[in-house]
Design a protein around this nucleic acid. Sequence first.
DNA 1: TGATGGTTGTGCGAAATCTGCATAACGCTT
DNA 2: AAGCGTTATGCAGATTTCGCACAACCATCA
Lengths: 115, 115
Amino acid sequence: MNDIQIRSKIWLEVDGEPFLGGGRLRLLRAIAATGSINAASQQLGISYRKAWSQLQEMEKHGIPLVEREKGGCGGGRSIITPQARELLSKFDDVQEGLHEMIDDKFDQVFKPDRN
Amino acid sequence: MNDIQIRSKIWLEVDGEPFLGGGRLRLLRAIAATGSINAASQQLGISYRKAWSQLQEMEKHGIPLVEREKGGCGGGRSIITPQARELLSKFDDVQEGLHEMIDDKFDQVFKPDRN
DNA sequence: TGATGGTTGTGCGAAATCTGCATAACGCTT
DNA sequence: AAGCGTTATGCAGATTTCGCACAACCATCA
């Protein structure tokens, strides 16, 4: 059998459209860590434009996630809101151990015992 | 809080690219049920072109999934291979109960007790 | 006080992807 | 040999994604 593997993902939806998944989660984390959308996008290897678009998509449902300031000391900065922090934490709680569990189940079903 | 919900999916990859997920699974099932790619695509509400492309993507890794005949009685027909049948079965085994489990965990974490 | 620097914000054309129409190939059936 | 319903596929149009280029902003500092 070819080298076959399982992948899995979870994400949140609001009003039936994507709200928060793995990629956007990493983005918010990077913004929290760097204090800048620009620095975060570079860290993740995506364009600023893309990061900004993702934030737009997330926030269009009315939940404020990032507070931005343009101009000023350092040119500007961005920090994530307490609500965003809580979301990240809860998302982690749900995701915790999930991939491992699924990988295990995959091995059980797809990889015959070597006895 | 807005109406927020969780979604989840699993899929198989071969050589690092998508091989079998929910959509292609339904396609193979529909082909098995109808004996025809054309009928299957109509049943699923997708174009024949799209169904055919998905089969191409799946089979380009060398695992034969559908045996096709063009021309002949009825114009032609398609049946899925034993290997495809086995894949469907195993995929179900891995997926069984998964969505429910994730939904439960989501409720635990995101919906506070109403005491 | 005005020039500077680094960030956020955005329009728009290019690039890539997806979609499906149109048509060929095929081989039983009659 | 004509017809029929399926599989197979090229290709153009539609749609989405991508990212370059540039505007807006404001504390700092000369």
